[in-house]
């Protein structure tokens, strides 16, 4: 077991009735790493995480967390993991402090309720009922609860889904802090920003399979360093013409925008301006962006993440 990864997932398969949720998912996460499962809704992220948490049984494949099998290890396993589930709740009339104390009482090794409330900005809400909390506060409580037992491995399933950008940033800060504590974190998300900002390594999941894996940087490099140019014009264009501009490898339309993927950006822009002059068309806006994970996802699957 020397140098074994903290989380190992091998060839995981799971079907619900006719739906094949997982079709051979494999990856591994090292000690102290923040690993992201990135993919659209229904890609199989939650199924994977819930199998790792021991909430679901896989049809086939193997998983281990710190060398333990979530299905058979029982309490010993529960002691070392912390989890913030995606679809869960607490009783409406449970108070913040009570929830932390209650869940803390299940573990021999635990963190102080006061410390957790302070850290997650819940002190003012310590006596508030669960039903009175806002979405962001509920999520902060869920994160605090995931840490009551000071776990070695933390599972965060869509920790920022449905939250507004400001609250999302607060959650990022918290996760950044956990990273400093050298916790091993497995996080699922369909926000590109989140994966790029927080994760050491990312696996892109689609239709129950890992379609790419690596550090965000590696993934971008692998995509062939194609830069995206987003253009908006006063008159619509026929795609064919833009596609044949110098350096353009691909052209897509998205609402009123044209997305040009180019390997030689300066030349493409010169060619674009010339083309527009000939067509008596005018630029409304132009934006150049380095390839993001979003583009990689698009490149690999032909779809955007949030479709």
């Amino acid at each position: 077991m020397l140098n074994a990864a903290t989380i190992e997932v091998e060839n995981l398969a799971k079907r619900y009735g006719d739906v094949e949720a997982l079709r051979g998912v494999s990856f591994s996460v090292n000690e102290g790493e923040v690993f992201g499962l990135l993919g659209p809704n229904g890609a199989g992220k939650t199924s994977t995480v819930e199998i790792l948490e021991g909430l679901r049984t896989p049809d086939s494949g193997r998983v281990s967390v710190c060398g333990l099998d979530p299905q058979t290890s029982g309490v010993e396993f529960k002691y070392i993991i912390g989890a913030a589930l995606q679809s869960t709740a607490l009783p409406d009339k449970m108070r913040v402090r009570e929830a932390l104390e209650l869940f803390g009482s299940f573990y021999p090794r635990r963190r102080g309720t006061v410390e957790l409330m302070k850290r997650f900005g819940l002190e003012e809400k310590r006596n508030a009922f669960y039903s009175q909390l806002s979405g962001g506060q509920k999520q902060r409580l869920a994160l605090a609860m995931a840490l009551v037992n000071d776990p070695r491995v933390v599972f965060l399933d869509e920790p920022t889904a449905g939250l507004d950008p400001q609250v999302r940033r607060e959650i990022y800060d918290i996760i950044e802090e956990l990273k400093k504590e050298k916790k091993t974190i497995l996080l699922t998300t369909h926000y590109i920003e989140e994966a790029e900002k927080l994760c050491d390594r990312v696996a892109i999941v689609d239709h129950g399979k890992v379609i790419a894996e690596g550090t965000p940087r590696e993934l971008k490099q692998r995509s062939g360093a194609v830069t995206r140019i987003t253009v908006r014009m006063t008159k619509p264009e026929t795609n064919g013409a833009l596609n044949s501009l110098e350096g353009v490898t691909e052209c897509r339309t998205e609402a009123e925008d044209y997305l040009l993927y180019s390997t030689r950006v300066p030349r493409t822009i010169v060619a674009l301006v010339k083309h527009l002059e000939e067509q008596n068309n005018e630029l409304v806006s132009l934006e150049i962006s380095a390839p993001s994970l979003e583009d990689i996802f698009l490149e690999l699957t032909g779809r955007r993440l949030r479709d």
């Binding site: 021991g54 909430l55 309490v75 529960k78 589930l85 679809s87 709740a89 869940f103 299940f106």
Partner: peptide, 16 residues
């Protein structure tokens, strides 16, 4: 109610 709201699942992740 607890089961439908997913409250029990949260307990399941804990050693209960």
């Amino acid at each position: 109610t607890f089961r439908e709201q997913g409250i029990l699942r949260r307990f399941r992740v804990a050693p209960v």
